[in-house]
Structures are given as structure tokens and as C-alpha cells.
Write a protein that binds this DNA or RNA. Structure first.
Length: 329
DNA sequence: ACCTGTCAAGTCTGG
DNA sequence: CCAGACTTGACAGGT
């Protein structure tokens, strides 16, 4: 009997299919100031956040309708949440029911949810102030996951950060500064290789040292590598997920180059063949895999990819449902 | 309805 | 040392 790898596919933040369902509506600090009334400003921000959370729930329902069990939420659910001048504001009491509704729905549907704090969360920074802001941002993301009632399988995916002219020192500083974080934060983190600075080999070393699961971005690995093939790193990357106290399939990110001039930019859709080649290479040693699509066309790119995969059904690919496939090694 | 500039946060590069 | 590039979705303000 041939081994087959179960692959689930997901997408990020917003839908290009469902209209008027942005989970990232915001308000600028300038507008907040212009209101003059701080309390009124807080209430308006809370309403916007409530709407973002409501739209997130709408997206989850859309996902369930299309068998999508993998979804990364917007980091901008609460506008100005970590803004320096709004430290006295606590929007969570008001938003608790809306957060719970999301978590309850996801838990019931068996969905895997995550965040990706943006690249301002940098634990390799030499600046004390930036480190403080990074901790604040990560804490905020963990608090949102907690408010949803999601267990530690729901992660915050981050990059290592800048090199500051000396990558080895920056990497060591990341390890040092990350190690000092509260365990409740550390448990919620995965590390991802980036497309400019910390490549897959370097990120993997740090993941192993800190015992953190590593998310392999195969597009980043393609533009930032040491000559290795991604499948050659896979046994070790796969192993970083085995230390999880809960069973969690390894996750990878996939996107395709925007064009010949801009290889790092993300295209509207995902090319099926490079992805399929990688999936076939790791299928013999992997039982489950989650694939996050990072394409401009979001869920539409997911549907297109599933459609493209259909032409390989006589070639080791079995379509299981609208968002998952089985790949033979 | 559509277009252009701005926002928010960091790092990095060029002058 | 400082201005600008980079990135992203959405706001803000203009036509």
C-alpha cells in the first residue's frame, strides 16, 4: 500500500470572493485625536473592532462552507490596539463575546487559526524600545487568542528580524531575548524563514535551539537560500513540530514570484507545479501537512489551485474535498 | 465612483 | 545623521 500525505489548504486574512467583509477596518490616530472626546474615540474604535470580529466570523462560516480548515486572521482586528498613546484603553471586556464567538465556532469546526504579527515584531533588535514594543505586540496577539478560547495550538508566526550588520550576533540576541519571555508567550510562537535576512537554514537552527516549530516558506526559501533544496531540510523542519505537546501538522507557506523583475513580490495566484514537486518530495516522510497560501487573490487563489490540482488526479493526487488533497510520495 | 497621497511600524540603503 | 525605500490594506480628501 502506498503512503499518502494528507494536505489541507488555507489562506490569509481577507476574502476576495466575499465582498464587504473586511476584518481590518481601522481608524487613524489623527482621526481619533480630531474627535476631541477620548471616551467617544474609544467607543468608536470598539465598534470598528466589533465589526472586524463579526466579519472574521463571517469568513469562518464561508471557510466552513468550502471545507477550509486553515485560516490566518488579520492582525488589525482592533485598530490602534498597541498604539503608544492608547495604553490606558482596554477594549477586551467589551469585545469578549465577539472573540468568544470566533473561538467557539473555530473549535467546533476543528479549524486551525493563527496570527502573523507584522515585521515590527523583532526580537533580534538591539534597541530596548523596539524590544519593548515587540513584547507588547506579541502579548496583544496572545491575548486575542486567549479571548477566543483557543488553546496553544493557535500560534503567532514571526520572523527572526534584522541582522544589523552582524547576523550571527543578531541571531544570538534573538535567542537571548526570546528566552526571557513569559512561557505563555513562547508557547504561542512559530518561526518562519524570511526572504532577505534569516534564511531557512539559519531559522531552522534557531528553531531547534529554542524548541519552536518552524514554518517553512518555500517561496522565501527559493529566493534566500544557501544552495540547499527545501526537501533536504524537511526532516529537521518536520522534527521541530514533533516536540509540540499537542499533535499539530507541520505548516508551510506558499506563494509565487510576482514576475521576472520582482521575484520576491507575491503573484495573484500560486503556480501549481513547484508546490506539487515539493509536496511529492516530502510525502514519503510526512503524514499530514497544512499549506497556507499567501497570494494576492487570497481564497480565490486557493480555489484556483484546487482546480489546477485536478489535472493531476491520475498522477498521485486525490482531491478529498474543496480545500484538501492527498498526495502520494 | 475613482484616484492619489497618507498612515502605521520597523530595518536598511544611499547620500 | 537623516531622508527615502520597502510593505500592506485601508483611510482621507480631492475631483
Amino acid at each position: 500500500m502506498k503512503k499518502a500525505m494528507q494536505v489541507r489548504i488555507g489562506y490569509v486574512a481577507m476574502s476576495t470572493v466575499i465582498k464587504n467583509a473586511s476584518p481590518s477596518r481601522t481608524m487613524t490616530y489623527k482621526q481619533f485625536e480630531k474627535l476631541g472626546d477620548i471616551e467617544a474615540g474609544y467607543r468608536r474604535l470598539e465598534r470598528i473592532a466589533e465589526e472586524n470580529l463579526h466579519n472574521t466570523l463571517r469568513l469562518l462560516k464561508h471557510n466552513r462552507m468550502h471545507d477550509i480548515h486553515l485560516y490566518r486572521m488579520s492582525s488589525k482586528l482592533i485598530p490602534l490596539a498597541t498604539h503608544q498613546s492608547l495604553q490606558d484603553w482596554d477594549p477586551f471586556p467589551y469585545l469578549k463575546p465577539a472573540f468568544s464567538a470566533i473561538g467557539d465556532y473555530a473549535n467546533q469546526a476543528g479549524m486551525r487559526l493563527s496570527f502573523h504579527p507584522d515585521h515590527f515584531t523583532v526580537f533580534s533588535t538591539p534597541r530596548e524600545e523596539v524590544l519593548r514594543h515587540s513584547i507588547r505586540d506579541l502579548t496583544h496577539h496572545v491575548r486575542m487568542l486567549d479571548a477566543m478560547g483557543l488553546d496553544d495550538r493557535a500560534k503567532n508566526n514571526i520572523h527572526i528580524g534584522g541582522a544589523y550588520g552582524d547576523k550571527a550576533t543578531a541571531g544570538a540576541r534573538f535567542i537571548h531575548q526570546f528566552s526571557k519571555l513569559d512561557p505563555t508567550l513562547k508557547r504561542r510562537v512559530t518561526l518562519e524563514n524570511d526572504d532577505k535576512t534569516f534564511n531557512a537554514v539559519e531559522t531552522l537552527q534557531i528553531s531547534e535551539k529554542l524548541r519552536l516549530p518552524m514554518v517553512l516558506d518555500i517561496h522565501h526559501q527559493w529566493v534566500n537560500n544557501e544552495g540547499e533544496r527545501p526537501q533536504d531540510l524537511w526532516p529537521r523542519i518536520h522534527a521541530t513540530w514533533r516536540e509540540e505537546h499537542v499533535v499539530l501538522p507541520p505548516k508551510i507557506h506558499v506563494s509565487s514570484p510576482k514576475n521576472d523583475k520582482d521575484l520576491r513580490g507575491h503573484a495573484d495566484y500560486v503556480q501549481v507545479e513547484p508546490l506539487l514537486n515539493f509536496l511529492r518530495a516530502i510525502a514519503p516522510i510526512t503524514t499530514h501537512l497544512d499549506v497556507m497560501i499567501e497570494a494576492k487573490m487570497k481564497d480565490d487563489a486557493l480555489f484556483k489551485l484546487m482546480d489546477d490540482l485536478k489535472q493531476y488526479t491520475n498522477d498521485g493526487v486525490t482531491i478529498k474535498d474543496q480545500a484538501s488533497v492527498e498526495i502520494e510520495g
